[in-house]
């Protein structure tokens, strides 16, 4: 997980090519954000966890459609944070698309810790829109390749 570059998914573990995805991500030992959130008590901010779940949901769509469209976070319909997330934790992010239509999708997502305990869950709406340019599309696609996507549905 590279918080400064907003790359919050390390590995795409499973994708059914349709509506679900499982990803993993490891919280870094050190990051500038922990200097303020909080001194002597580093905790990953809740907004980062929401973004992580949005990125997982976006990957479901982008991997299924070969990165034809980008998925932008449009609505946080609900979000709950059930436990603190701290440095060096390995997180599993599961997301499932529950609705799709009108250029939007809704996904339900969960983040679990290594012991399987849910640390956060959410229901998000993502807006699907063409990439602003090819440079952006290639950048996002390369991040997915680095995360283990092999260029085809996993």
């Amino acid at each position: 997980m590279n918080i400064e570059y907003n790359q919050l998914i390390d590995r795409i573990v499973e994708h059914n090519g349709l509506d679900t995805i499982i990803c993993e991500s490891e919280v870094p030992d050190r990051a500038p954000i922990f200097e303020g959130h909080f001194p002597g008590n580093p905790i990953v901010p809740g907004v980062i966890l929401i973004e992580m779940m949005a990125q997982a949901g976006g990957y479901i769509h982008m991997l299924s459609k070969d990165f034809e469209e980008m998925a932008y976070l449009a609505t946080v319909r609900s979000a709950k944070f059930r436990n603190f997330v701290t440095p060096n934790q390995v997180l599993t992010i599961k997301s499932k698309i529950t609705h799709h239509g009108g250029g939007y999708l809704i996904c339900k997502a969960k983040i679990s810790d290594a012991a399987g305990g849910v640390v956060a869950d959410s229901e998000l709406m993502l807006k699907l829109q063409n990439f602003a340019n090819e440079k952006m599309r290639e950048y996002i696609k390369n991040i997915a390749l680095q995360a283990g996507w092999n260029g085809h549905d996993l």
């Binding site: 529950t98 609705h99 009108g102 939007y104």
Partner: peptide, 13 residues
Amino acid sequence: SVDFLNVIFDIES
């Protein structure tokens, strides 16, 4: 449009 789609998805559920 975002609000409308939120309503639509809620109605569908």
